[in-house]
């Protein structure tokens, strides 16, 4: 069976699938809710967005097609996500005081492909302002989600986040997913 990265790599990142209005709306609602969850730091809800093998991926190179076994800015399964949540919310995570605030805007939602079983590849764009240490940093880029349809709504099998300035240099570091 093809891995999630292989499925994304095999997809046509310029394609536009002819999906129903209901599907389009359901997907947009999912992406907007994901943005709200991270902005509001609802970490249990965040983890629930991902399937058991779900991965959040931010490649370090533009032409990267695989994340496993390669250098990435992010490559996290739900255990590493739990590690990040535990660390960043730990009372002794002193670099998290004062807490940062995030504000995402997600747009340009295009469903790229729809399988017979309802699985989807979705492209979108985001802008995120981060207020941290009394200053604002801006991040922007594109998402590509591989969504699995379950009886209980969509689950993320793979989220690829490509930051426009992924090569850096990064001023300070990234502590949360974008």
């Amino acid at each position: 069976m093809a891995s999630a990265t292989e499925i994304l790599a095999a997809g046509n990142a310029q394609a536009v699938a002819d999906v129903s209005v209901e599907t389009q709306l359901a997907v947009e609602r999912f992406l907007y809710r994901q943005a709200e969850i991270i902005d509001e730091k609802q970490w249990d809800d965040w983890l629930a967005l991902f399937g058991d093998d779900g991965i959040y991926w931010m490649p370090s190179e533009e032409d990267q097609v695989e994340g496993d076994g390669e250098p990435n800015v992010f490559w996290e399964d739900t255990y590493l996500m739990q590690m990040r949540i535990a660390r960043n919310t730990h009372p002794r995570a002193h670099s998290q005081a004062p807490h940062n605030r995030l504000c995402h805007v997600v747009s340009n939602v295009i469903i790229e492909s729809e399988e017979a079983n309802g699985d989807l590849i979705v492209r979108s764009r985001f802008h995120c302002a981060e207020y941290f240490r009394y200053e604002v940093r801006n991040f922007t880029g594109k998402y590509r989600h591989l969504l699995k349809k379950t009886g209980d709504g969509y689950r993320i099998a793979l989220q690829r986040t490509d930051l426009v300035n992924r090569e850096g240099p990064y001023e300070y570091v990234l502590q949360w997913w974008l």
């Binding site: 931010m58 370090s60 076994g69 390669e70 250098p71 990435n72 800015v73 992010f74 490559w75 590690m83 990040r84 660390r87 995570a93 002193h94 670099s95 240490r133 850096g168 990064y170 300070y172 570091v173 990234l174 502590q175």
Partner: peptide
Amino acid sequence: RRSLAYYYLVNSPSTLVNADDLFNWW
């Protein structure tokens, strides 16, 4: 893979370690 994991967990821009170091230095 062990080098890569250290590179990721400690030294990447999403470091789970150095974030607190850089903050101390600042």
